[in-house]
Amino acid sequence: MAEDLVLDTAIRDWVLIPLSVVMVLIGILRYFVSKLMRSSQVPDPKIVKEGQVILRARNLRAGANFIPAKSFRARRVYFSNEENGLLYVPKGQAQNPQAQMFSDPNMAMDMMKKNLSMIIPQTLTFAWVNFFFSGFVAAKIPFPLTQRFRSMLQNGIDLSTVDVSYVSSRSWYFLNLFGLRGLFSLILGEENATDDTQRMMQMSGFGFDPSKSLGAEKDGLDILQHEWALPKFEQRAETVLRNLVR
């Protein structure tokens, strides 16, 4: 059965290679367009400060045993009291990022720009591939595969009799879309590769909430038992000196 299908060389010349070339060119074009549209982001002082507060609170939690109890207690109150503690986030005031996004047009604009440079070329190329090349068997991979790969390699061909090692044109498009990252990092430099898969991950994990990590730090501080480590150091110093003097 598999031997019956002979692929026309014209398919190679007019489908397989153009498709790959177009994908590469679009990737490069998109990189430059997004570079043009990228606005230098001014970080929000509040967010910077929150990051620093978390860092300092974490330091306090890790090194608590190295400072006297009085100093530790003073700091804990400073961080987590319920009036103006740095880590205390009043209930209800915790911003939800969705609302924040709508209230800040700049942020929405940024998101839109990112999406524009990603979604528009993708839909266009997908439509293009669908329109011209739908139903093509564009390539054959030189090794047999199991039935599970059918949905990955033969997207757009609804024939269960075709051997799985044949690749449909639409699947070739998808393979290119996700597989060209290495090539881009070669052409455009290590960090510039437009990585669609990673961006999609970012999109789905967008709901990051800084107030949550503040709350977590606060809880961590609240349950911390302070046990001053310094008295132990006196004994350790004694042994060190004993060894030294001897």
Binding site: F66, P68, L230, P231, F233, E234, R236, A237, E238, V240, L241, L244
Partner: peptide
Amino acid sequence: QTAKKYYASTIDLTGG
């Protein structure tokens, strides 16, 4: 007393 403890910790950390 606290100072003495911190001198001791310095000795420990520097190996005397």
